[in-house]
Design a protein around this nucleic acid. Sequence first.
DNA 1: CCCAGCATGTAAGAGGTTACATGATTGC
DNA 2: GCAATCATGTAACCTCTTACATGCTGGG
Lengths: 186, 186
Amino acid sequence: MALDHALLVSLLEKPSSGYELARRFDRSIGYFWHATHQQIYKVLARMEEAGWIVAEVQAGATAPDRKEYSVAAPGRAELSRWLAAPTDPEGTRDALMVKLRGAAFDDPARLLPELEHHRATHANRLTAYRIIETRDFAGTLDRQRALQYMVLKSGIRFEQGWLEWCEEALEVLRSFGQDQSRRTTP
Amino acid sequence: MALDHALLVSLLEKPSSGYELARRFDRSIGYFWHATHQQIYKVLARMEEAGWIVAEVQAGATAPDRKEYSVAAPGRAELSRWLAAPTDPEGTRDALMVKLRGAAFDDPARLLPELEHHRATHANRLTAYRIIETRDFAGTLDRQRALQYMVLKSGIRFEQGWLEWCEEALEVLRSFGQDQSRRTTP
DNA sequence: CCCAGCATGTAAGAGGTTACATGATTGC
DNA sequence: GCAATCATGTAACCTCTTACATGCTGGG
C-alpha cells in the first residue's frame, strides 16, 4: 500500500493534478517508484474520500476540469504514522537472474543481446543521474535537499553496480562462445 | 509472467514437489525471486495443464500424495523462447526512498531505526552470500556453475552497495539530530 | 485541418498476498 | 501427547497492467 504514501509525499512537495503526478512518475519520482495514470487516479479518488487529501477544482480552463490535490491534516498524520512503521527490505525479483540460470539449459549466447540492452539502459540512467547531481545538488544543501540527494545517490550506486556487473557477465558469456556444446543436459 | 519461468528453471535444475520448490524459494532461489507456496501450487497446476511439466505421483509415503514435477519438451521450448525474448530492466519500487523524501515533512530522526534495520538486513545477507561464495564457487567452474556464480555476484554487489549507502544515509540523518526544528513546512 | 498535449476516467484480467483448511508421520 | 515437518490446496481480497473511452485547446 505504498503508492498512497508516494503520492502523499509527492503532493507535499508540490500540490498537483493527477495528470501532473503521472508525468512526474515517468521522470523524477519514477526513478525510485513507478505508477501509471490509471493507478494514480484511482488512489487519488480513494484518498480524497478518506479525507487524506483535498481537491481544488479549477473549472473552465481545461476539458475535464483540472483538480489540484493537496494534503490535508489526516493525510499528513497517516504519512507520519507510516514513516515510523517498520518495513522489511523488499524481496528482489529479477527476471534477468532467472534467465542467467536458465541459460545453462539453452544456448547462453542467446542472452547476449539482452545483457547488452541492460548495460545500455543502466548506462543511460547513470548518465541521467549524474547530470541531475551536478545540476541540482552542488554546494550547500538544506535538509530537504540533503534527503533528496541521498535518494539520488542510491540510484547512482545502484546503476553503477549494475553496469559493472553487466560488463562482467558479458565477458563470462562471451568466454562460453568458444566451445560449441549447446546444452549441459541434452 | 516470470514465475512460470523461474519454476521451469528450478525444475530443470532439480525435479521437485511444490513443497520443495516453496522451500527453495525461501532460500537459494529466493535471493533473486520470491514466491509463496500458494502461488507456486497454482502455477504448477497451470503449467501441468499446458503440458509444460509432468507430474509423477508418489503415492503412499505422505499424507496428500507427493507429486514430483519435471519439465517436458513444451516447457523447455517455452523457456528457450522466453530466454531470447527481450525484457526491459524492471522499474524500481523502494518504499525506503519514499520514506526518505517524506522525512523532509516530518522528523527525520524517526527513520533511524528503519535505516538501522535495513543496514542489519543487508549486512546479514551479504555475509550469507560470502559464505555461499567460498563454499560453492571456489576453483574451476563448469558452465552452469559459472552462470550461477554470476547471479550470486550480482547479489553481493547489490548488498554491498546497499550497506555502504545505509551507512552514508545514517550519517546524514544523524547530522540533522543537532538542530531541533521539527518540520520544513509547519 | 490535424496532431500533440492536457485532462479525466472505466473495465477486464493477470498477478500477488493473507487467511483458512486438512491430514499423516517422526522425533521428543 | 505435542510440536515440527511434509504435503496439498481453496478463497477473498488487493494491486497492477493493458486496453478502451472521451473531449478541449493551441500551434503549425
